[in-house]
Structures are given as structure tokens and as C-alpha cells.
């Protein structure tokens, strides 16, 4: 299991994260919520092994992340970075197929099978054959998501712990595809048993699809747990500096619905 153990991180002596401990359990879809500059992306980068904490440890199955080889980690952990850009002229198929690069042992037919499944999950089947730079921002984001899905699903063995990290995956998507992407991420957690983490801004989307929510403010965790425990007016006020009313969702009373009072 991937976990943060009393992790502190600062940039140029400015503290970003302070004594953060968090476990990322398999089969759960965890949302990271927080205001701009709260440290969400830094937290994700630490989980991804891009950054090394000044204090504390990031652990993968008890082992420090730094001790794991990059190529090994790529076989069990996939990341969708924020604002993926691409300067060169590649086709959509070529971008998606990159998700299979860490699995050199897979046969082309096995790779094709995973790619097809990922394309359906990410709703990009109709984009195959197009050039990546000609796509809209939202379409590019979904193609990148399909690439991440390929990496997450390729050569997966039953019971193996895997992790997918998504940094603001819905930032350029229309409402339909925001729901589509988060539903796919939820399926990834529930059906494939993968640990999924997403940095999100829409509180109600998180309540709809995520099984756990972690709220971050000024580099510390305010609350962490199941949505109806975490999404309280008090926590929302601390996180966003905004008064909020929380009611039961009219169509699904077990789910909280957050209304910001402004």
C-alpha cells in the first residue's frame, strides 16, 4: 500500500506540506480537496515519487519510495499530470500506446486488447486516427487518461496493489465527460481493485464518485474519511474559507450535497 508517513515538504524554505500522514488503500477512490495553494499537487507529486520529502517517508508496501527503481514503479503506478501538453506531432493511438511502454514483455495483441478497453473507458474510441495536436483541450485530457488507463490495466495480476494518481483530471472537461471520467476512475477502484487518487475542485463530484475524501488546507490535513463524515460546514469553512450548507442529496439521501452560501 502507498502511504505518506509524517511527510513535510517545503520549497525555497516556504512550507508546502506539514506533517501529513495518509494511506491510499486498494479498491478505494480517494479525492484530495483543497483551496489553491493548499498543497494538493505537491502531495500528489510526493505520492508519485517525483519529489522527495525533506522530512518523513513516502512508502510503497513498507519500503521507501526512493529505494524503488523507476522502471519497477512504472509497472504498478500510473500518473495523469495536470495540463499535459505536447509539442510534437503524434497520433492519438501513439499517445495511448505509450501506457504500455513499461510492459515490454507484452505481446502486441495483448497490448491491443488493453488499449481497446482503455479507449472505451475513456470514451476516446472515436478519436483514434486523429493527430493529438488537432484535438481540443478536453479531448487531449481524455486521451491522456486513456494512456494512464493502459498503464494501470496492462499485465495486472489479481490481488496486486496498483495505484493511479490523477491531478485535476476533469479541469478541461464538459459536465458529461467529467462524470464519464470519474465513473471510469470509480470503476477502476471498484472492479479492478486499484487505489485511485484524484485532485478535484468540485466538492459534489467528489461526493458522488469517491469513496474517501481528504481535505487539505495550508499544507495540513483537515479531515479524511468517507464523504458524509468529511463534508461538514465546519470542514468546508476551514478548507475553502467559505460558508456552506450541507444537505442530503434529493435523489440519494445517503449522499451529502454541498451548497456554498454566496
Amino acid at each position: 500500500m502507498l502511504s505518506l508517513d509524517h511527510v513535510s515538504f517545503s520549497r525555497c524554505h516556504r512550507p508546502i506540506l506539514n506533517q501529513v500522514s495518509l494511506a491510499i488503500p486498494a479498491g478505494e477512490f480517494t479525492a484530495i480537496l483543497g483551496a489553491n495553494g493548499a498543497g494538493k499537487s505537491t502531495l500528489l507529486s510526493l505520492l508519485a515519487g517525483e519529489l522527495t520529502p525533506q522530512h518523513g517517508h513516502v512508502r510503497w508496501a513498507g519500503q521507501d519510495l526512493r529505494e524503488l527503481a523507476n522502471s519497477q514503479l512504472a509497472r504498478v503506478r500510473a500518473v495523469l499530470p495536470q495540463n499535459p501538453g505536447l509539442g510534437f506531432n503524434l497520433s492519438v493511438d501513439e499517445v495511448i500506446a505509450m501506457g504500455a511502454y513499461p510492459f515490454a514483455e507484452l505481446s502486441p495483441s495483448a497490448v491491443a486488447e488493453v488499449i481497446q478497453a482503455a479507449q472505451q473507458w475513456a470514451d476516446v474510441s472515436h478519436l483514434t486516427g486523429r493527430r493529438y495536436p488537432t484535438l481540443s483541450g478536453g479531448e487531449q485530457q481524455r486521451v491522456q487518461f486513456a494512456r494512464v488507463l493502459v498503464q494501470a490495466l496492462a499485465a495486472q495480476q489479481a490481488g496486486e496493489y496498483r495505484c493511479v494518481l490523477l491531478d485535476e483530471p476533469t479541469s478541461s472537461l464538459d459536465p458529461l465527460h467529467q462524470h464519464g471520467l470519474l465513473a471510469a476512475a470509480q470503476k477502476l477502484a471498484q472492479e479492478a481493485g486499484i487505489a485511485v487518487v484524484a485532485v478535484l475542485h468540485d466538492v459534489n463530484l467528489a461526493a458522488r464518485y469517491c469513496s474517501r475524501i481528504t481535505m487539505l488546507a495550508k499544507g495540513s490535513i483537515i479531515a479524511s474519511g468517507i464523504p458524509c463524515d468529511v463534508l461538514t460546514p465546519d470542514h468546508l469553512q476551514q478548507t475553502y474559507q467559505l460558508a456552506a450548507t450541507v444537505i442530503a442529496h434529493p435523489q440519494d439521501p445517503k449522499r451529502p450535497l454541498v451548497l456554498f452560501d454566496c
Partner: peptide, 9 residues
């Protein structure tokens, strides 16, 4: 970053 995530040092 993406190359790093795909396992290239």
C-alpha cells in the same frame, strides 16, 4: 514528468 511516470530515469 510523464517520461518519469512511464519508468524512464
Amino acid at each position: 514528468r510523464e517520461a518519469l511516470h512511464l519508468g524512464f530515469a
